[in-house]
Design a protein around this nucleic acid. Structure first.
Lengths: 225, 225
DNA sequence: CCGGGCGTAGTACCGAGGTACGACGGCGAC
DNA sequence: GTCGCCGTCGTACCTCGGTACTACGCCCGG
C-alpha cells in the first residue's frame, strides 16, 4: 500500500486528489497539508511514501518545503505537481531533490502511474518539461562511452521566440550551409529559405547569417567539431 | 496522423511494433530499417514524425544514427528504444539529440503515449532512467565551469599557414564584423580587408566567411560568449 | 643586391545574401 | 466561423561578399 501526503493550499484541490487516490486500492491518503511548513512537519510525523507537493503556497512554497524534506533525510519521496509548466519551477524543484515533476493538466492515470513510479524509487517528469530539461542539461550529462555528441538546442532567451522550423534552419545555417543548399537538402524553395532566414534575423537581432552562426554557437545550438 | 519509421535489426521485432502501431488510428508506419545507415537514409527520404530507434544494430548503431539524423537538421524526432537500461546508452542517446528513451519492457500503452509525446514535440524518458538522469543532473548542476584545456589555436593544422595578420582578421570575422567594419576599426581600406579575407579562405579551404566563422569556433580561435 | 613573403591598396565583375512586398493553404484557438 | 500563426512560394531590388588581377613599399635572408 502506497501512503500519500497531499500538500496544496486549496482545500478543493486536495479533495479532488484525495478522491482520485482513494479510488485506487493500492493507495491511501494519510494526511493533508495546506502550507509548506505544515508539509514539512507532517512528512516528518507521518513518513508517507510519497508527498504530492504543490508549488504555490502561502507561508513556504513547495520548492523550499521539498528542499527541507529531502535535506532532513526523510525516506519520503516528493512528487511536485503544479499548474505552471514554467522551467524555473522544474529546475528549482528538481534541484531541491524532488523525485518527479508533473503538471496539473496531466490525465488522472498519468498522475497515478507517476505516484507509483515515485513510490517504487523511480522518477517522473512531465513530457512537456522533459524536453526542455534535456535541452537545458544536455551539457551537464556525463559523457558515456560514445564520446561527445553534437548536442541539442538549448532553451535560450534569444532563441525562445523562434519556431521549431526556424530553430532548425538556424541550426543548418550554423553548419555553414548556403541558402540553396538548405533549400535542396530540406526540399524547399530557396525563396522559402530566405523567408525563414529573414525572420530568424529579425527575431534574434542578428544582422546577417554570420552573426546568426555566432549566435548558434553561443547558445550551443551547434557545437564545435 | 503520426508517421513512424521503425528501426530494428530484428524483423520479428519490427513486425511486432508495426502491428501495435498500425492498430492505432492516429499512427501509421511509413517504413522500416534494419541498420543505422538505412535508418539515416530513410529518415531523410521519408521524413517521418518519429523514428523508433533500436540501439544494437549491425553496420551503425542507433546512437550514431541518431546523432547523424539530428545533425542533419531533420525535423524527424528520434525515440530510442532498447532492451538495455544501461545508463551510458541513455546518456549517449540523449546527448546525440534523441527526444526520448524508453526500455523495451515498457507496456504497449506506454510506448504509444511516448510516441505521441515525442511527435508533439515533447520528450520522454523511462522512469527507471529518469531517476538516475536526475541524479546526474543534480551532480553536475553546481559544477558549471570546467574549462577546456588551453590549446593553442595557432597550432591547429588548418590555421597553421595563416600569417599573424590573417589570424587576427579571422578572429574578428569570427566576431561577426563586416568587411567595412573591420576596415574602419583596424584602419584599413576595405579592399585590403577583402584581400586578407580572400587569402584566409583560400588557405583554410573555407568557402565563405560563414564557414570561416565556424572554423574560428572549431579551432577555438574564438569562443562562445 | 635581389627574390620573396607580407601587408597594403585599387578596379572590375558577379553571384549570394538580405529586404520588402504579396499570397495561399493548414490548423488550432477563440 | 473567423482570426491569427505557421510554413510555404514568388518577384523585385540592392548591398555585401568574394574573385581575379594588378601594383607598390617594406623587410629579411641568401
Amino acid at each position: 500500500m502506497t501512503t500519500v501526503l497531499i500538500v496544496d493550499d486549496q482545500p478543493l484541490q486536495r479533495f479532488g486528489f484525495r478522491m482520485l487516490l482513494e479510488s485506487q486500492d493500492d493507495m491511501t491518503v494519510v494526511g493533508e497539508a495546506g502550507s509548506g511548513t505544515e508539509a514539512v512537519r507532517l512528512t516528518d510525523r507521518l513518513r508517507p511514501d510519497v508527498v504530492l507537493m504543490d508549488i504555490r503556497m502561502p507561508d513556504m512554497d513547495g520548492i523550499e518545503a521539498t528542499r527541507r524534506i529531502v535535506a532532513s533525510g526523510s525516506p519520503s519521496r516528493v512528487l511536485i505537481l503544479t499548474t505552471f509548466d514554467l522551467d524555473e519551477y522544474a529546475y528549482a524543484g528538481l534541484r531541491a531533490g524532488a523525485s518527479g515533476f508533473l503538471i496539473k493538466d496531466a490525465l488522472p492515470e498519468e498522475l497515478l502511474s507517476g505516484i507509483r513510479a515515485v513510490a517504487s524509487g523511480d522518477a517522473v517528469v512531465a513530457p512537456r518539461l522533459t524536453r526542455r530539461l534535456l535541452e537545458a542539461f544536455a551539457d551537464h550529462l556525463p559523457a558515456g562511452e560514445y564520446g561527445d555528441a553534437p548536442g541539442d538546442p538549448a532553451a535560450h532567451p534569444r532563441l525562445s521566440s523562434l519556431t521549431e522550423r526556424e530553430r532548425q534552419i538556424l541550426t543548418v545555417i550554423g553548419q555553414g550551409w548556403t541558402n540553396s543548399e538548405i533549400a535542396a537538402r530540406l526540399h524547399l524553395a530557396e525563396s522559402t529559405v530566405k523567408t525563414h532566414v529573414g525572420r530568424i534575423l529579425a527575431k534574434t537581432g542578428a544582422r546577417d547569417r554570420v552573426q546568426a552562426v555566432i549566435l548558434a554557437y553561443d547558445t550551443k545550438l551547434v557545437r564545435p567539431a
